[in-house]
């Protein structure tokens, strides 16, 4: 059977194809101890991790903005 790291790498690539970046990032982390010397793996892993972080930051900002709007309305 495939080694767990190989399977994680395959699943990360499949998740990238489906644009499921959070799953891809999780699977890349599982595969990392075994593939981190692979240059292509490193680029895909870091890019995906950065994308997930940026998306999360944007989500937070949108939440804050919506809270501010609600407060403005509640205080007239």
């Amino acid at each position: 059977m495939l080694k767990p790291a190989e399977k994680a790498y395959f699943q990360a690539l499949a998740a990238l194809k489906d644009k499921d970046y959070e799953t891809a990032a999780e699977q890349f982390e599982k595969a990392a101890p075994f593939f981190e010397q692979n240059e292509e793996f490193g680029i895909l892993r870091k890019t995906t991790r950065l994308l997930v972080a940026v998306t999360e930051e944007l989500r937070k900002l949108e939440k804050e903005e919506s809270l501010n709007i609600e407060e403005s309305f509640s205080h007239g």
Binding site: L16, K17, T47, L51, E62
Partner: peptide, 19 residues
């Protein structure tokens, strides 16, 4: 937020092309 949005699009586009 605009800078982050731009960065998000650039990263997504890079990954789409890589895939």
């Amino acid at each position: 937020p605009e800078s982050l949005k731009k960065l998000q699009q650039t990263l997504e586009s890079f990954l789409e092309r890589a895939v």
